[in-house]
Amino acid sequence: MNENNIDASWEDLLAQLQLLVGKRPADLNAVLFLIGVQELGKGPIRFSKEAKQDLMHIAVCKILSQSGYYIFDGHDKDGWPLWTLAKPLPHGDLMAQESFLKKHVILYFQSVLV
C-alpha cells in the first residue's frame, strides 16, 4: 500500500467511522482509542487518562499483531489484554511511524468491517 493509497483509505475509514459512531475521529489517537475500547470489550465507560493511554497501547498491539509484531498473551486479573513484543518494530521518523500505524489500522478495519 503506497502513501497515496494510505491517505485515501484513511479518509474513507474516517468517513465510515463517522457513520458508525456519529462523530468523525479527530486523529490517529482517537481511532486507536476506539480500537482499544472495542478490544477491551467493556463497553462505553468512563476511563481515566492513564486507562485511555492503556487503551491506545492495546490498540497498537492489536493492529501490529496482524503483522507478527505482537503476540496476544491472554488477560490480566482485571480482564485487560496482555501482549508481548515478538519482533522489533521498524524505525523511522514520526511521519513514517504514523503512516505505518495508519496502514495497520486500515487493515484492522478491513477485517472487522466486512
Rank of each mutant, 00 (worst) to 15 (best):
K62R: 13
L89Y: 09
G74N: 06
V37D: 06
I63E: 02
L40N: 04
P81F: 08
N29C: 04
H91C: 11
I6F: 12
F33Y: 13
L28E: 10
K102C: 11
P25V: 05
M95H: 15
S65Y: 05
F47K: 05
L34C: 11
L64E: 06
M95A: 15
L20T: 10
G41A: 03
G36D: 04
L101W: 09
I45C: 05
D93R: 12
W83E: 00
Y69H: 14
P81I: 06
G36P: 05
P81Q: 03
W10F: 06
R46Y: 03
Q53M: 08
N29T: 08
P81V: 05
T84V: 09
K102I: 07
V60W: 00
L89R: 10
D54P: 02
H57Y: 06
E39R: 10
D93H: 14
V60G: 00
L107G: 11
G74L: 08
L34N: 11
L64W: 03
Q66F: 14
I58N: 02
E11I: 03
I106Y: 09
I63C: 01
V21S: 04
F47W: 11
A30H: 03
L64G: 01
A8F: 15
D76P: 06
Q38G: 06
S67H: 13
N5I: 13
A8S: 15
D93G: 14
G43N: 01
S48Q: 07
Q97R: 15
V105Q: 00
I63K: 03
L13G: 02
W10R: 02
G43F: 00
F33T: 03
Q16W: 11
L28F: 07
K77F: 08
E98W: 08
H104V: 08
